[in-house]
Design a protein around this nucleic acid. Structure first.
Lengths: 205, 205
DNA sequence: CCGTTATCCTACTCCCCGGTAACATGGCTT
DNA sequence: AAGCCATGTTACCGGGGAGTAGGATAACGG
């Protein structure tokens, strides 16, 4: 639970932006715990020690909150991928690095919201926008896999299906991960990636 | 879209049960297309060529519809696993067979509803019941993996994490599968299972 | 045939919750 | 000091949809 910045003082412009982020963050946490529809704006307001109309000062409506949460999650993934890709390692290492970041983001507020809530409650246009962003991430995964195949580092396969499989295995973490569990996000990511890469079948034989 | 059995004639008892199943099936289809909350009981009734109160003659309320859909999905999985396990093959083959059935169920009405909608809209007790059933499925996967490890057929790993990874990769299919896509559920299942088993990394070297 | 019961419909109620109107407050500028 | 704008609040509206009351109809048993 992020503290709300209400009661602190400071600039004017940046303060406003910080509060907006706080609204989104707290909302994402609430959505992840209770679900989108089961979370009322009064619930969110209560968590922020604020009244409901105040939220409307920072955000257009409930739908925009979810849209922005999902967009932030996708933005984190996009940035993570851009950071890694072309950073100088082998395609194989890059793929692992991107997967690792993906898995971690999926355990964080916005990333988890993206997976858990999804885009179902949004209108057609917002869904289209999000799907476009998702396709961007997916394309990066596919490209890495395809280049890995060509480099002889990745097993020959349909890169499209492989990307789905991989995204599924990692996204699913968001459905069962709890911060108070025995494993840290890093450990979970490591184990998942190791299994995805090496496969369940024993080698040789 | 399953036809509704309204207008046919026949027994009395079995007819009633058939109609109840039709309500659940059509509801699951609607939930999968539109989402649980965005689907009104009037929508479901319209698809059945029936008025809303008629639905209440076969079902207690909207929550029970979702609960039953999810329960049916889990029941299918449970049955599939029981059919396979102990049927005489190697542990490895059994695991593959269960995964295959799991992947197919997840592309069907109830299985897809189980994954897409989830248990979030349900009350605490219903959620507990479903979670218990889920744990049963999960335990079967873990047991197969564990026995596979001991038999030297599965790579040594944390069976718990492996089961999650596997369930995630297969469940995710429900999020993007469309019946009018280029791949059949069988093909999707085959490719996913092949990748999960062999891993993305090239062998040897 | 006639009563009984299963089945289904029309026409409501009721409440939750997203969204808004209109007013209060307090800091910054001039 | 005086007013303006950003920020919040209380108190409300309105719609949508879950769920129900009560009546019509039709199948079935005697």
């Amino acid at each position: 639970m992020t503290d709300s910045p209400w009661k602190a003082a400071g600039d004017r412009q940046s303060e406003r932006e910080a509060k907006r982020i706080a609204v989104l963050t707290v909302a994402a946490q609430a959505f992840n715990e209770t679900g989108y529809h089961a979370t009322s704006l009064d619930d969110i307001a209560r968590r922020l020690n604020v009244s409901k109309p105040t939220i409307y000062y920072y955000v257009k409506n409930k739908e925009e909150i979810l849209f922005e949460c999902a967009r932030m999650g996708l933005e984190l993934m996009e940035e993570a991928a851009n950071e890694v890709i072309g950073s100088g390692g082998s395609v194989y290492d890059e793929l692992i690095a991107v997967m690792h970041k993906y898995a971690e983001i999926v355990t964080m507020d916005f990333g988890m919201c993206l997976i858990r809530v999804g885009e179902e409650p949004l209108n057609a246009e917002s869904r289209r926008t999000l799907r476009t962003l998702k396709r961007g991430i997916d394309a990066k995964f596919r490209s890495l896999i395809q280049r890995g195949i060509e480099a002889g580092e990745i097993v020959p396969c349909d890169a499209k299906v492989a990307a789905f499989m991989l995204a599924g295995a990692l996204s699913w973490i968001a459905r069962w991960y709890r911060p108070d569990g025995p494993l840290t996000p890093q450990q979970i990511a490591d184990q998942h990636i190791a299994l995805i890469m090496s496969g369940l079948r024993v080698r040789g034989g």
